[in-house]
Design a binder for these strands. Structure first.
Lengths: 244, 244
DNA sequence: AAAAATACATGATAAATGTCATTTTCTTAA
DNA sequence: TTAAGAAAATGACATTTATCATGTATTTTT
């Protein structure tokens, strides 16, 4: 009996995701999709596919051909690239409201980065043909996408300079602040985003052990507090100074 | 008398640059401007301004407001960003045929990077209003600009991972190969682009002394040859292996 | 051409970071 | 619930890289 109930519930859930209307999706307001009019949104709703991604699963991998863009409805994922030395470097984190895959779609190239869920996610996929149509007809949309990519480019250039010129300690401090600013904290004050030490190391571009050691130093200095996997920023101003 | 001749010559030169027609400019074929039709090119020609930049001079500085895009007709410049520690990090080199300032113009933000000539240059400036008009009417042009920025973004992400994950030695080897591949060599086989050791260090993100030391090592290993300021790559395959 | 300034080079040393080994703690699956 | 596995933490040490000092070569200015 509970078995049947379970399937009924699951089925209803899936249907509700598939049927969800883009015009009513709050998340749309946060991306270039806000430039689409009602009619266009109806078109999107009718051709999009929606799905859930579990923590740890990939939305796409480096090298995959992506024939459209993903709109993140819920959850956070990492965009990473495997480097020659076998380490996974996290280039960026993406949260709900943001789009994924524009670069690859526009360049008509395989994905340059992998996208892997850091939490359970809800994601919609909009096929390329649809988007290309909007590029043709809706100039505001094109401009918005362009601006968003330009923002990514600026972010990437800045990030690159930070990687090249800052010490590991500075980068760690900077990253911790970035995580709190952009992904918030839990009720207990700890960072909402849960990254493993290895992932955090992959974000600041250092060895896992170095990352752990520095976290430990920050902890001893009272800048942060470590409780199991959880990290709580205690002295934000001092961290900011450390990050320069 | 030679005085008068000089001014006459200089004047003729300036006029020739100002009057030059974009439709006949070979360089246009290498950028998004190739997507413009004859009529549009005539419009560009009539509103553009042309000028020369001497080696070491800036086209624009980090923080400047740029109200248009620059088309590089001749010469190479560096795009760099001042980091917190006071070092100038070279993000990218730009050569003739490429455009400059799109990011800033599209985002409607001050320049994120400084552009400084590495050689004497000839540059044309096309005002924003004109470009925005093309965005509205010529979809191929918009797409081309978008693709070019997407290419920059990919390059920047890749560069960032290299900065974060590779050693200084690997980065130096990689950069030397990049310089030869993209900017060619002189008749004597030495790299055409002349960077000071400080600039090269700023490109790979290291201290000038470290850069000099590694060049010296490469020299002793026979991978390169140093003749005064000139650098000649001798063992490209070994360098490629070093770069991983 | 000489003097001054700048760029290049190198040694000595310190500091930062990576690697390997080991222990401890936490998580997961049987 | 326990055993096995994974993640985190720490120590010892090697390697890389930065910094400071100083000398040499090269360019620029006078």
């Amino acid at each position: 009996m509970t078995f049947i109930m379970y399937f009924f519930f699951k089925f209803a859930q899936i249907i509700s995701i598939i049927m969800s209307k883009c015009e009513q999706c709050i998340v749309r307001e946060f991306s270039s999709l806000k430039a689409l009019n009602k009619e266009e949104l109806l078109k999107v709703a009718s051709c999009k596919t929606s799905f859930t991604i579990k923590k740890g699963e990939a939305i796409f991998d480096e090298g995959d051909s992506i024939n459209g863009i993903y709109c993140i409805k819920e959850g956070v994922c990492k965009l990473s690239k495997l480097s020659a030395n076998g380490k996974d470097h996290i280039v960026k984190l993406i949260k709900s409201g943001e789009l994924l895959g524009q670069r690859s779609m526009i360049s008509d190239e395989p994905a340059n980065l992998s996208a892997v869920a850091l939490e359970d996610m809800e994601v919609c996929f909009i096929p390329k043909t649809e988007i290309m149509g909007f590029f043709d007809k809706n100039n505001q949309f094109s401009m918005s996408v362009m601006k968003s990519i330009c923002g990514d480019l600026k972010g990437s250039d800045d990030h690159m300079v930070a990687m090249a010129q800052k010490t590991v300690k500075e980068r760690l401090a900077q990253t911790l602040i970035y995580l709190e600013d952009n992904f918030g904290k839990n009720e207990d004050g700890s960072l909402h985003i849960q990254l493993s030490r290895e992932e955090l190391a992959g974000m600041i571009g250092t060895a896992t052990e170095s990352c752990i050691r520095l976290l430990s130093d920050f902890n001893k200095l009272g800048l942060i507090e470590l409780t199991g996997k959880k990290i709580t920023l205690k002295e934000i101003n001092k961290l900011k100074k450390l990050a320069e």
